[in-house]
Measured scan of single mutants.
Amino acid sequence: RERTTFTRAQLDVLEALFAKTRYPDIFMREEVALKINLPESRVQVWFKNRRAKCRQ
């Protein structure tokens, strides 16, 4: 699998959701994945990595 490159628009949507909740449930992830045209698994990993970035 190639490394996913997120567009600015995708990142804006993800960051906005992250500001609301750091742990979105499966339904929220599915919804945002459809909206920004990414698989739900990529959204899940993005959140995992974003939380890790926050902890540093």
Score class of each variant (00 low, 15 high):
47 F>K: 00
56 Q>S: 08
8 R>Y: 13
30 E>K: 09
39 P>A: 07
51 R>E: 06
8 R>K: 14
16 A>S: 09
26 I>F: 15
56 Q>P: 15
42 R>A: 13
42 R>W: 12
27 F>C: 13
19 A>F: 06
38 L>T: 11
15 E>I: 03
51 R>I: 09
12 D>Y: 04
6 F>H: 05
7 T>W: 01
17 L>M: 13
25 D>A: 02
54 C>T: 13
35 K>R: 11
39 P>R: 03
5 T>S: 10
12 D>R: 08
1 R>C: 07
50 R>F: 05
23 Y>M: 07
43 V>E: 00
20 K>S: 08
53 K>H: 12
37 N>P: 00
40 E>N: 06
39 P>E: 15
8 R>E: 15
22 R>L: 07
47 F>G: 00
15 E>V: 06
34 L>G: 13
8 R>V: 08
52 A>H: 13
56 Q>T: 05
41 S>R: 11
28 M>T: 08
6 F>K: 04
6 F>N: 03
47 F>E: 00
55 R>E: 12
38 L>F: 05
49 N>G: 09
7 T>Q: 15
16 A>L: 05
23 Y>G: 02
17 L>I: 09
7 T>R: 03
16 A>T: 13
8 R>W: 04
51 R>F: 00
54 C>D: 15
19 A>W: 06
43 V>L: 05
39 P>K: 03
24 P>T: 00
20 K>G: 03
12 D>A: 06
11 L>Q: 15
56 Q>R: 08
28 M>Y: 03
49 N>K: 09
15 E>Y: 04
26 I>L: 10
44 Q>T: 14
20 K>W: 02
47 F>P: 00
41 S>I: 06
9 A>N: 10
56 Q>A: 14
43 V>R: 00
45 V>E: 12
31 E>H: 07
17 L>G: 01
30 E>G: 06
36 I>V: 13
41 S>P: 12
44 Q>W: 07
6 F>E: 09
5 T>V: 11
45 V>G: 12
38 L>H: 06
50 R>A: 14
19 A>V: 10
34 L>I: 12
48 K>M: 12
39 P>C: 04
50 R>L: 03
38 L>V: 13
23 Y>P: 00
27 F>P: 07
22 R>P: 14
12 D>N: 09
14 L>T: 02
42 R>I: 10
32 V>C: 15
43 V>W: 02
41 S>A: 14
25 D>K: 03
14 L>Q: 02
4 T>W: 04
28 M>R: 08
29 R>S: 05
17 L>H: 05
29 R>T: 12
28 M>C: 03
15 E>C: 02
30 E>L: 09
45 V>I: 12
44 Q>L: 10
2 E>S: 07
31 E>W: 05
35 K>T: 09
39 P>V: 04
39 P>N: 09
17 L>A: 12
3 R>P: 13
29 R>W: 00
38 L>M: 14
14 L>C: 04
9 A>M: 09
35 K>M: 12
17 L>D: 00
19 A>I: 07
46 W>T: 00
25 D>S: 10
4 T>S: 12
22 R>K: 14
41 S>Y: 11
5 T>I: 15
39 P>L: 04
4 T>H: 08
23 Y>C: 11
48 K>S: 08
16 A>G: 08
12 D>W: 01
50 R>V: 02
3 R>F: 13
24 P>S: 02
50 R>I: 09
45 V>C: 12
22 R>I: 10
31 E>V: 05
21 T>Y: 09
41 S>L: 06
27 F>E: 11
49 N>F: 05
9 A>L: 08
38 L>G: 04
37 N>K: 12
47 F>C: 03
8 R>N: 15
54 C>E: 13
5 T>F: 12
16 A>P: 05
32 V>I: 09
19 A>C: 07
5 T>C: 12
15 E>A: 00
53 K>G: 12
56 Q>Y: 12
48 K>E: 15
12 D>T: 10
11 L>E: 12
11 L>S: 06
24 P>M: 01
6 F>Q: 03
43 V>K: 04
49 N>P: 10
46 W>K: 01
39 P>Q: 07
55 R>D: 15
30 E>Q: 13
34 L>T: 13
29 R>A: 05
14 L>F: 01
50 R>M: 13
16 A>V: 11
18 F>W: 14
10 Q>D: 04
22 R>A: 14
49 N>I: 05
43 V>M: 03
42 R>K: 07
2 E>C: 02
45 V>S: 11
46 W>L: 02
5 T>G: 11
6 F>R: 01
53 K>F: 12
37 N>G: 14
3 R>E: 14
51 R>W: 03
23 Y>A: 03
34 L>F: 08
41 S>Q: 14
18 F>P: 05
47 F>V: 03
33 A>D: 15
40 E>L: 07
38 L>I: 03
40 E>Q: 08
7 T>F: 03
1 R>G: 10
12 D>C: 10
28 M>A: 14
55 R>S: 13
44 Q>M: 09
18 F>H: 04
31 E>F: 05
10 Q>Y: 01
52 A>Q: 06
55 R>Y: 13
10 Q>S: 02
18 F>K: 02
9 A>F: 12
17 L>W: 04
10 Q>W: 05
8 R>P: 15
15 E>G: 05
10 Q>T: 04
26 I>W: 10
32 V>L: 09
50 R>W: 04
14 L>D: 00
29 R>M: 14
53 K>R: 10
24 P>A: 00
36 I>F: 09
45 V>A: 14
24 P>Q: 03
23 Y>K: 09
10 Q>A: 00
54 C>K: 07
7 T>A: 08
29 R>E: 01
26 I>M: 05
43 V>S: 00
14 L>S: 01
55 R>V: 13
25 D>V: 01
54 C>L: 14
40 E>A: 09
56 Q>V: 08
52 A>C: 07
39 P>M: 04
33 A>G: 12
37 N>L: 05
16 A>R: 09
13 V>L: 11
18 F>D: 00
